[in-house]
Design a protein around this nucleic acid. Structure first.
Lengths: 188, 188
DNA sequence: TGGGTCATGTAACCTGTTACATGATTAG
DNA sequence: CTAATCATGTAACAGGTTACATGACCCA
């Protein structure tokens, strides 16, 4: 998956491993967090597969760099991946795993738990958050309205997801508060 | 993470590796899909850590089984994990990764793409889907209202998430349809 | 007689995380 | 002078996937 993300970025234009790392951090971090070490490892695999090629560029005043570019085989692979319709069934939510078992903790601790979840929602504060630091990335896309559109779709998803998460955690908190009130009534 | 899920299930009561596999398939599959092979491997690690212990139970008419039970150390570890407040930053969505790069495909192909996403939304059809086959699991919880509540919270999340996903894909389709209309006008 | 359930795993591989290592230039 | 940016990686480990293997019993 990360392989294809890198391929997609190199399809936008040549870049170094460092550029790719920055692109992930600035433009893709709201749906994929990639470690630098993994990027360089996958880059090696992509080269071994003949999907990209490296060109050493010497610089002065700066470290030399490996400029990467996508090959024709790489482009075919990118398109193949985009067209395949796998039913991506990778469901894995650590947050819900923890939620599932929280019956072992007290009501107050659980209210705290959901409050902490709600507090973490700040990637897109009123539609202008972290992921929007990608202004330079956006500039690059402005001449390609299709790319900008799909980038925006992923941002829309992020905003809608966070809104939903906030609603959900508030709903959970409300139910827990309700239980707490009942317990206090029982005691009187 | 899977380790703690298994620990949580064994905290409900003794079980075999097979029981745990079924519990994941029936009750936890809407937020975590676990392979049988991985469950048995983690079980080994849990035993090595002293968090669970195995008892061989011979049966006739059926294969012998290893009945697993949580130890005191295991319970402490479960509680420690529930209380720790890690800011779970594991964001990784193959669906959004693909969305991001779909500018390389035609509008019609992309409309199809989002329609396929919308079609996959059937885990909780009108609040009574796949994840609700867990009736036996629910019975086990009915005497423990706390457990039932948190199980329900995860189901609520699933329903809200799917609703959001449907809205999102429809919104994307609408925008793509709009672009298509404009292009047709341009041609006349 | 064939498929489903009960029951337990191994081996190889792929993917992701954590920690470490290096070193020059440039802006405050 | 010091922190950030540019630039590239390695090593070890942890976690997840795919494929395979075995075998009895029960129900249709």
């Amino acid at each position: 998956m990360l392989k294809h993300g890198i391929l997609g970025l190199l399809n936008y234009g040549d870049a170094t491993g460092y550029d790719i790392m920055l692109a992930f951090r600035k433009s893709l971090s709201h749906f994929w967090v990639a470690q630098t070490s993994q990027i360089y490892r996958e880059l090696q695999v992509l080269e071994d597969n003949g999907w990209i090629k490296k060109t050493l560029v010497e610089q002065d005043g700066r470290p030399d760099k490996n400029v990467l570019s996508i090959t024709d085989d790489g482009k075919s692979e990118l398109i193949r991946w985009l067209r395949e319709d796998e039913v991506t069934k990778t469901v894995r939510s650590p947050m819900l795993m923890k939620t599932f078992f929280r019956g072992e903790c007290s009501i107050d601790e659980n209210i705290e738990f959901f409050k902490r979840i709600a507090e973490c929602i700040n990637v897109f504060p009123d539609g202008e958050g972290e992921a929007f630091d990608a202004k330079d990335q956006y500039e690059k896309m402005i001449d390609n309205p299709e790319r900008a559109l799909f980038w925006k779709f992923t941002i829309d998803f992020g905003i809608m997801y966070e809104k939903m998460l906030l609603e959900w955690s508030n709903k959970c908190i409300q139910q827990l508060e309700g239980m707490k009130d009942e317990q206090q009534k029982d005691r009187t």
